[in-house]
Design a protein around this nucleic acid. Structure first.
Lengths: 154, 154, 154, 154
DNA sequence: TTTT
DNA sequence: TTTT
């Protein structure tokens, strides 16, 4: 019965992360990630096919995303699929699938600036590379968790 | 721009595959796969959380699924995320996400029978393990396989 | 600079886990895992090609392995590649690559017995499925960790 | 018995690819890839731990690597583990593990040049993005690609 | 031997 | 809506 539900994505953000702060030092970030596949059709024309993914990050990860990611950023993402379902006003079943991010890594060169609200001198804040990889995390000692076998609330 | 869109699942089928045959030797199978995550809540109670995934397989793969998979089968799946979107009659945007399967592997012991419509002597048809792993494959103008330095697996 | 080093394996154990207990509640398990790939050669003969992997698990994970895994067990493994190198007595560089396991999941039906030293009524000990999935872990509250961004000593 | 043997890496090349041309349009490329993991030790000092991987690519893939990859290139790699073993002159068993690459994707911005032997105006050769993603491919009796519902990507 |  |  124990299962595996794993997603690996490499793509670019369609816009800056949207971060909401909740009570108790909690935060959630929503991001839209494009993964583009390129192939030739039977006439030899190159076709790009883009898939858009809704990413969700929490807490320390959300804050790192806010600080370092922005529209266009290329990232590697690991996460799991979660589908929300509900009934709409017409009583119809509705579904929405998102990727709950467990860790991500920034790709490509150094960021040329930072999150959308950041002054572009945040290069320094970026230094050492504490943000280059983020795992689902929280406490200030940089505790790293993954949410498979424990009592995390998600 | 080149991206990665990869899903890895291990779970059990919620029902037998539903296979439709289309014109020209094409076939498509729909499957529902449950991946269950188990964790302890803060009171130490074990909680099972199940996520259901819509899988789609085509052609040779669909036929193998029909023949060898059934309700309860445990499989390893590799695929990619595809989200269909459309407008419903109320003009609202609707979304449905599925996993386009690129390869799968049957897990656990030998199948005790076979697909739901199969005589249970299909054990023989199963022999060696021709069905144990399936890659996306099919008609010759659409040949797509994913292995490497060898002859083709089917 | 942040990188990704990820291995995903599904295979069977070639023998029972070998577990060593070290000072301070530490334990390490060595396992040999076979992943077999099946293909047809150009004469249509089915060929099985088996790759053997050296797995290493630590602490809580090692103990779970000892208790529930044995020769023949089919498991799903996630981990990372680590290559040890040293000079042998002739002054030659020697290399040995192993998989540091970060999590694993038992596949197939319930185990029919248990680790090699276990009474075969361990079915009960196995109950619900507390052991079915293991992450790199430690403390008794079932704390789950992965060792990417922290100060774990391995 | 069917198994899974999958490696996913993101890292940087330690040097330009070494490509050898063999008889019959065959080619093989050797690459060294560094994956670096960053963590804080218990004193809060950031530690970088680098793992080096031997990559092997064949045929079309090797040629693309020669043309577009060079020292420092950041790539995403998918492949499988292969361990060669042999006896050395002392009759000792020797082992060497490498990653047989099945597909790779260049990460980060546009290449600023090209393979080590290429004129740096190869930007044009790079155009559209024929090299951005490569799957295992090659001679017609050994055609192996890994994508899905489309025409072939090269 | 890479990268930040 | 990203990227090349």
């Amino acid at each position: 019965m124990a299962g595996v539900n794993k997603v690996i994505l490499v793509g670019n953000l369609g816009s800056d992360p949207e971060v909401k702060y909740l009570e108790g030092d909690k935060a959630v970030a929503k991001l839209r990630l494009a993964t583009t596949e390129s192939y030739k059709d039977r006439n030899g024309n190159r076709i790009d096919q883009t898939e858009w993914h809704d990413l969700e990050m929490w807490d320390g990860q959300a804050k790192i995303a806010e600080q370092y990611l922005k529209k266009g950023s290329q990232i590697y993402v690991e996460g799991k699929i979660k589908t929300d379902s509900w009934q709409d006003e017409q009583g119809q079943n509705r579904y929405r699938t998102k990727i709950r991010v467990l860790s991500f890594t920034m790709l490509g060169g150094k960021p040329d600036g930072a999150g959308s609200n950041q002054p572009s001198n945040s290069q320094q804040a970026y230094s050492p590379k504490p943000a280059a990889t983020s795992n689902t995390s929280g406490s200030s000692q940089d505790l790293v968790l993954d949410d498979s076998d424990d009592d995390l609330p998600f």
